[in-house]
Design a binder for these strands. Structure first.
Lengths: 188, 188
DNA sequence: TCCTTATTTCGGAATATTCTGAAACATCGT
DNA sequence: ACGATGTTTCAGAATATTCCGAAATAAGGA
């Protein structure tokens, strides 16, 4: 795959971004490459283009699949697996959110539940400390539950909901601080 | 600060969690400690309780402040700074979300905008590749804008909105898969 | 089966992050 | 000003992560 200067810079930037997001550089770059390429690429070509070890690509592809961000495809007359990026960004974002919930929120809830159950036999801990732990547990559980509910909405409904949110926000803002000149009606 | 077994395990778990969330262990543990303690603690006591270097506490406290998760307070007759955790979890979550947007989303938008402007003078890049980059840029910008709008809502409104979301989700779910005991009247 | 090609695993090198302890710095009271 | 107390900075040690390349494994076709 021949990269144009902008494609290259896009990929590099994504590598940066990825680190902030908890992916590692290679993983992020591979996604970026597949995303701009817009066409399925085999692993060795990815390795060649990004100049990383073939094995590194293998591992990273695994991770991307676990995030649900790329998919395997096959080309006729080619035994190699090819990979495509999910290009619908709503879908991709949802996949990332799902994965993060699963990895970050759910285990936390579980851990906190464990603490709470242990707390019953811990006579050195204060009542209020337990209460605080409980409220953190409940908070996470509520947020998680809400997410699950909303997560299953078809995209159209979701968009409607988001627009509603934004609209409410704008009305609210106007009501609360009518000092802004409010020249533009749009955001930003 | 004397830690009970459960408090200790809570803190340890939080340290774990923190790493998944992009904080480092010490930072996460300090927040956890202040959170369960529920009372302001001076830096050296934090260091003593968690058995980490005093300087490490100093750095971590800085970071926690930059996330807006703890605040300085003072006790009469004590020159030392004391720190308390934000215990309202709505607020804390909002602070984290703000910080993440600022660190993760905003720079990404900027980088993508840069790519797009460069793309005009890059004749080796395909139209469709540019289009894909643009759609990613627009997606992030839209999401960021939405977030900003909603972010400013008072908590009560936000909660209403979330409840609405969940309710819509439940109705929607019933309409779409009428196999639940409810005799589905709607089909799609 | 055996040869060829594609993929994965894995030990350790390269790199990046986190943490420590000492020293520098700041602030207050006297 | 000086000492006492508290805080921050910083270089390098400790640790963790990422990456490479060789070797093992799988899978297809003759």
């Amino acid at each position: 795959m021949q990269l144009s200067p902008v494609m290259e810079s896009f990929i590099l930037h994504w590598g940066e971004m990825g680190s902030r997001w908890g992916l590692n550089r290679t993983v992020a770059q591979i996604y970026a490459l597949l995303y701009v390429a817009g066409t399925p690429l085999p692993a060795d070509e990815i390795a060649g283009t990004l100049k990383v070890a073939r094995s590194n690509v293998s591992t990273s592809i695994r991770e991307l699949q676990s995030w649900g961000l790329i998919a395997r495809t096959h080309a006729i007359g080619d035994r190699r697996d090819h990979f495509v990026a999910e290009t619908d960004l709503w879908t991709a974002a949802a996949r990332v959110a799902d994965a993060r919930k699963r990895r970050e929120i759910d285990p936390a809830i579980e851990a906190l539940a464990g603490c709470l159950s242990d707390a019953r036999t811990d006579d050195a801990i204060g009542k209020d400390a337990v209460a605080r732990i409980r409220s953190m547990h409940d908070f996470l559980e509520a947020a998680g539950g809400w997410y699950e509910d909303v997560r299953e909405l078809p995209q159209s409904k979701l968009e409607t909901l988001m627009k509603m949110g934004a609209k409410v926000a704008r009305l609210e803002a106007r009501a609360r601080k009518p000092k802004k000149k409010k020249k533009g009606k749009g955001r930003r």
